[in-house]
């Protein structure tokens, strides 16, 4: 069986679902002949034709609104925002319509659509190409926010997102698009949404993260293990609706929690998890909750961007602080 990267897993999931469900269509800028600027839709237009893999006019608002319209007619569009930093014009259609139509029509009109976007920094990209803004979507009711962090989870979660009867934001950590390969059988098996994945069992501290930071967080767990500290690593995967139980169970065991994300700290999604820990797990905690995040600045241009993104060292230090505190 072939080993594939995260981005190839995205392509594999799209191709599988398009072959098995003719209501699935892909649309966006450069998704056709070019196969997407990261090649996520490579070869799909050849296979499924120009109508089902549709190059749209260069207007994000159009992509988002047309996606709502198609989904309302029972299709399952998978729209691509070329970069997370270009998603802002789509937000009105997503917040006011996609996430809301089921509710405001009492279930008469639904929007089973997916918005994919290459997300996050760390690839030496130009300005506006490195944003992590998942927290802007996690506060929108009726919307799922999903971030895969491995080839297998990209495949399984994207299939689940497309099959989900409600709108899903699918943010792809582009820094790890080609980080490593793994075997991902093209069997059409979806992974569950709305659950966290425990990537590594541990007893001393819980490291909670998502997206590209899974890489640094797993590295930190290795480094901690070398020093005899056992870290549990949780990939949240679906930020909303949040599976808080998995996090709470882990913290009940370890008594310590470090939340790692690359978006700015203030009102980032880590704040929600920290608040929930304070509300529901206060007496399990042996140390204050730590957050290792991007700073409350704009992500700098690429000469400095790695100084902005949470590093393995920062995660290790935060974990050690929680241990020192108790």
């Amino acid at each position: 069986m072939a080993q594939i990267t995260l981005i190839e897993a995205v392509t594999q999931a799209l191709a599988y679902e398009m072959a098995h469900d003719e209501s699935v269509v892909v649309l966006g800028e450069d998704v056709g002949v070019n196969g997407g600027v990261f090649r996520a839709t490579q070869g799909l237009q050849e296979k499924f034709g120009e109508l089902r893999v549709l190059d749209t006019p260069l207007d994000e608002t159009t992509i988002a609104g047309v996606t709502v319209g198609m989904a309302a007619q029972g299709m399952k569009p998978v729209a691509e925002a070329q970069f997370e930093g270009f998603i802002y014009p789509m937000m009105e259609q997503i917040a006011c319509h996609a996430a809301r139509l089921r509710n405001r029509t009492r279930g008469r009109i639904t929007v089973p659509a997916v918005w994919r976007a290459p997300w996050g920094g760390g690839i030496r990209a130009p300005e506006h190409h490195s944003e992590a803004n998942e927290h802007l979507f996690t506060n929108i009711p009726g919307l799922r926010v999903v971030l895969p962090s491995s080839p297998a989870r990209a495949y399984g979660l994207l299939l689940a997102a497309i099959r989900d009867p409600d709108p899903v934001m699918f943010f792809e950590p582009k820094r790890i698009y080609r980080q490593y390969k793994e075997e991902v059988p093209d069997d059409g098996e979806a992974l569950p949404l709305d659950v966290c994945f425990v990537l590594r069992d541990g007893t001393d501290v819980t490291l909670v993260t998502w997206g590209a930071q899974v890489k640094e967080t797993l590295e930190a767990a290795d480094a901690l293990a070398a020093e005899g500290i056992s870290a549990e690593v949780i990939d949240v995967a679906t930020l909303t609706p949040l599976d808080f139980d998995t996090i709470a169970e882990s913290v009940a065991k370890t008594g310590r929690c470090v939340i790692v994300h690359e978006a700015p700290k203030t009102a980032g999604f880590g704040a929600e998890i920290a608040a929930r820990l304070a509300e529901e797990c206060m007496y399990d905690l042996l140390a204050p909750v730590e957050r290792v995040t991007g700073f409350d600045t704009h992500i700098p241009l690429f000469r400095l961007e790695m100084k902005y993104l949470p590093s393995t060292e920062r995660v290790v230090e935060a974990a050690k602080r929680t241990l020192a505190a108790s």
Binding site: L51, V66, T67, V68, M70, Q73, Q93, H97, R104
Partner: peptide
């Protein structure tokens, strides 16, 4: 049919998307 759309002109794209679905 679509429900009333209060955010101005956003419904135009829902018509375009519906028309695209009909075409496909």
């Amino acid at each position: 049919d679509f429900a009333w759309s209060v955010p101005i002109a956003t419904q135009c794209l829902h018509a375009a998307g519906s028309a695209l679905a009909f075409k496909i």
